[in-house]
Design a protein around this nucleic acid. Structure first.
Lengths: 131, 131
DNA sequence: CAGTATCCCGGACGATACTG
DNA sequence: CAGTATCGTCCGGGATACTG
C-alpha cells in the first residue's frame, strides 16, 4: 500500500485517517449521517453517550477533511445541518470493507482470543488444578 | 454494515478492530510482518520510534486476535519469531482498501483541509487585511 | 439550539531499570 | 535477546457552566 509508489505525505494521511476511524465516535457519527442529513441535536441524541464537546470535535474533524458538510440556517433558534459529502459517502466503501472482513472472521477472532486468554492467565491467579 | 443483520457482538468487534488499527503502531508492525517473519529485535529496529513496551503490547494484542503467531526458539540467547497468520494476511485486504481510498482521494482531502483552515483561522489571530 | 470555555481525572505511553 | 516492572507525564475526553 505504502510500499509501491511510496509517498510519505500520502502515507501520513493514511495514518491520520486510520487514527480518526479508530477513535470512539467518528464511525458512529458517519453511520448516522449515512441515513441522511442530521441536525446537531439529532446526532447528539442518536449517538448515545457522546458528549457535546466530542460531537463538536468529531464533526469539525470530519468537516475539515471534507467528509461532512455543515450548513447553518440563520433562523432563531439556530438550525445546523450536517451531511455526508460525496467524498464522505465514498468513504463508506473502505469502512464497509473493514466491517465485512470482521463479520466474516468474527468467529475466528473470538476463538483466537479465548484460546489466548486460556494460555495466558488473565491476571495473577493460582492455577487451582488438582491441588 | 452493522445495519443489516444487526449483531451487537460483531459490531463491537468491528469497533475494537478499528480502534486497534487506529493506534500509532499496529499498522506499521503488520506492514513489517507482511515482508515475512521477524524477530522481536528486528521489529524494534524497523519500526522507528517504538518503545520496547509498546512493541510488546502491540504484538500481544495482535497475537490475541489471532493475526500474528509467536514462536519461541528455546536457544540461548532466546529467539522469538513473529509472523502473520493466515488470518493476519487476509487482514491486509481491508487495510489496503483504506489505503487505496486515501491515495485516490488524497488531493481532495488536502484541498478540503486547506480550505477549511482558511475559513477557520488556525488560532486567535488578527485578520491583518488592508488595515 | 448549537455551540465555546474551563476544570479535572484516568489511562495511554515513554523512559528506565531489572530478569531468565 | 526478549521481555516484565515501575514510575512519571501528558492529554483525551467527560462534566459542567456560560453565550449568541
Amino acid at each position: 500500500m505504502c510500499d509501491s509508489s511510496y509517498d510519505p505525505a500520502k502515507c501520513q494521511t493514511v495514518s491520520e485517517m486510520l487514527a480518526r476511524l479508530g477513535d470512539k465516535w467518528t464511525v458512529l457519527v458517519i453511520m448516522m449521517l449515512a441515513d441522511g442529513p442530521q441536525r446537531f441535536s439529532d446526532l447528539k441524541r442518536a449517538v448515545v453517550g457522546i458528549s457535546q464537546r466530542m460531537l463538536t470535535l468529531t464533526l469539525r474533524a470530519l468537516e475539515r477533511d471534507g467528509l461532512v458538510s455543515r450548513t447553518v440556517h440563520p433562523t432563531v433558534p439556530p438550525k445546523v445541518e450536517y451531511a455526508l459529502t460525496e467524498l464522505g459517502r465514498s468513504f463508506g466503501e473502505p469502512i464497509k470493507a473493514m466491517g465485512g472482513w470482521v463479520f466474516r472472521n468474527h468467529d475466528l477472532i473470538q476463538m483466537a482470543r479465548a484460546e489466548f486468554d486460556e494460555r495466558n492467565p488473565p491476571a495473577g491467579q493460582k492455577l487451582v488444578q488438582l491441588g
